[in-house]
Design a protein around this nucleic acid. Structure first.
Lengths: 189, 189
DNA sequence: CATGAAAACTAACAAGTGTTAGTTTAGATA
DNA sequence: TATCTAAACTAACACTTGTTAGTTTTCATG
């Protein structure tokens, strides 16, 4: 019963390096050095560099999709659903800021899994859009251009991986709360 | 009197490719093929791959810095200044969505110019922060966590390069207007 | 038509790439 | 102690990388 398999260690280390320089700029020798071994030894645990990227990205994408399914099913108001989406992003991102960098910036280097990833991503965006549209229909949300609202909120949530690590003093519940306030009510007094 | 020098053409083509795959994944042979020539021929016009990246990123970063200086000097209200910042991002981004991808994702591959870029970037963020802090002091802006406001707005503006190309039907003034509405007043009814 | 320069070409380099094959080491179990 | 396996190693592969050197082509100008 090991706490973390060697493979998982490699994937975590890779994610850290991928965040710093991007998938393409990280060599297997870089990764090996960060693990304190030789490049060839990595292949006792993983099958390819590509497999590492797939592991990082697909598991995260599936987490988001599952979270969104749960939110869809709930009978909350549209605003409450949005708050749940914010919490989903804060939770997943804070647990894996390195992986989120790959999800955001290196997805195009997925090979066999690119189509699958893209389908998860567009499904997620479609569900998000539906929440906003329902909110407008119900009179909960301002009738502004839906695409602008969608991408404005989503851009902020997708960038969380960049600044959660820099603001350790801010606890996560506080962060969710401030984010909800800013994204939903704006900053105008 | 040529409309566009060969060097500028190369830089523009490079920016397009860099947006698709990132700086590291684009080879000089890729770039040459996109230009319809051989890789070695590129070196009649540019000195190195690195120089291309520098040209793309530094000119954009300086545009933002200059724009921010102008906004700082103006005697507008804090909210008006924010609206000017939004317009600045919309304008610069819409004119060069490819370059903005490099600015956002490939700056870490700058070599000699990395320190200079970083100083421009943190200066820009500091000026942005000052606008928000003054707005709070003057009672124009809600007294929410400044870092959350700053990075929420900035994340959205920095992501513009991704979705301006997808929403051609939206004209730029309309876009600025909707963005101001969403970022400043929120989406709550 | 001759000429000069800009811009293309071919060929090659040294270094770095992901990955494989085969071997050795270390540590748990029989 | 002997054995087995996981996980490290060395060495090498075929290919790709950015870049240079030297040569040929293109074409506007004298």
């Amino acid at each position: 019963m090991k706490l973390e398999s060697r493979k998982e260690e490699i994937i975590k280390t890779a994610a850290k390096l991928f965040k710093e320089k991007g998938y393409s700029a990280v060599t297997m020798r870089d990764l090996a050095k960060a693990m304190g071994i030789k490049a060839a030894s990595l292949y006792n645990h993983i099958n390819s560099k590509q497999e590492i990227l797939k592991n990082i990205i697909i598991s995260l994408a599936e987490e988001f999709t599952e979270g969104m399914q749960a939110i869809k099913k709930s009978k909350a108001t549209s605003i409450e659903k949005l708050q749940q989406v914010v919490a989903l992003h804060v939770t997943i991102t804070s647990q894996n800021t390195y992986g989120m960098a790959s999800l955001n910036n290196d997805w195009m280097h997925l090979e066999e899994n690119l189509a699958y990833y893209s389908s998860l991503r567009s499904g997620y965006e479609a569900d998000f859009r539906t929440i906003l549209e329902e909110g407008i229909k119900r009179g909960e949300i301002e009738n502004i251009n839906v695409e602008v609202m969608l991408f404005s909120i989503l851009s902020t949530l997708r960038s969380l991986y960049l600044w959660i690590p820099k603001k350790e003093e801010l606890n996560l519940q506080e962060l969710s709360k401030s984010l909800n306030q800013v994204l939903i009510n704006g900053i105008n007094k």
